[in-house]
């Protein structure tokens, strides 16, 4: 006996979120206001993503949650358990098996397919917020396509550091119209947003905004002709699986300041190790 309505939220709330998702898909990159609900977890733990997931899950789905790429962190485990309990959906840690993937701050390394939906948890959906605190003004700037300020911010990066120092939540332009915050994913992941075969949905619970990128939509990272966008990562191979092409976390491993670099996508790293790939610090095979 399950004492919750399917996927926790009541039907009227789900209808409201579903209408916002449809308008979001019809206006790619535009932030649709929605009446975010209290969820049984604090703001900042992915309440926006959870509400979007609750509105789109069906009993036949296989659900995966990642937190900074990892399936085994507290946040990922609790959200996965939450929907196991309230929606009865199957869950997985394998990117290829999932139909709905909720993510905090990463896009999986394994390319997504048309049969998958990626749900992002977003803390601050407004890319212009740190440049202009007033919502009334940022809304006007979006309506007038007045994005000069964002370019000034990137230019100031260049004049101060010699290159664009913004390394995560790197602003993108969607289908040549709205400038959008891709959530705090590393800029390494930005190219994966472009023309993705999967539907990408973004939910910001505290800020009460939902936005979306339909499949095969042009998503361009902002840059300058003489300072083109570069998807950077730590210049190392993974120390556990040897991958040269994945985004890495830097981990301090002792008091002497020794470090290791490991894939932030735990499923990608584990499947590569299962296939026999080894890195610098891999344990010896028994």
């Amino acid at each position: 006996m399950n004492d919750y309505n399917f996927a926790y939220l009541d039907e009227q709330t789900k209808r409201m979120i579903r209408r916002a998702i449809l308008k979001g898909l019809a206006i790619p990159g535009y932030q649709v206001p929605f009446a975010s609900r209290e969820m049984p977890m604090p703001y900042g733990w992915g309440t926006g993503g959870v509400q979007v997931s609750a509105a789109i899950l069906t009993p036949g789905d296989t659900f995966k949650v990642i937190d900074q790429g990892a399936d085994d962190t507290t946040n990922a485990v609790s959200i996965r358990k939450f929907f196991e309990r309230t929606a009865g959906v199957a869950t997985t840690e394998h990117t290829g098996e999932a139909t709905v993937i909720q993510t905090r701050h990463r896009i999986p390394e394994t390319p997504l397919t048309e049969d998958q939906i990626l749900v992002f948890q977003v803390p601050i959906p407004e890319p212009l917020r740190f440049l202009e605190p007033r919502e009334s003004e940022t809304r006007k700037m979006h309506s007038l396509e007045e994005y000069g300020l964002m370019h000034v911010k990137l230019y100031e990066d260049i004049s101060r550091h010699g290159h664009i120092a913004t390394s995560y939540a790197y602003p993108v332009r969607v289908e040549g119209r709205y400038v959008m915050d891709p959530s705090p994913i590393p800029k390494f992941d930005n190219p994966k947003l472009d023309r993705s075969p999967a539907i990408q949905l973004f939910g910001a619970g505290r800020e009460q905004r939902i936005y979306a990128i339909p499949p095969y939509t042009r998503v361009v990272s902002l840059d300058f002709e003489d300072h083109p966008f570069e998807a950077s990562k730590a210049d190392h191979p993974c120390d556990l699986c040897g991958a040269e092409d994945s985004y890495l976390d830097e981990v301090i491993i002792d008091d002497a300041g020794n470090r290791m670099f490991v894939c932030s996508d735990s499923d990608y790293c584990a499947s590569r190790q299962a296939q026999g790939h080894r890195g610098r610090l891999s344990p010896e095979v028994a």
């Binding site: 579903r18 998702i21 449809l22 898909l25 789109i56 539907i199 979306a212 339909p214 499949p215």
Partner: peptide, 10 residues
Amino acid sequence: FRKVMEAMAR
């Protein structure tokens, strides 16, 4: 809804 969303997204 999933059908409607797929239709609107594609």
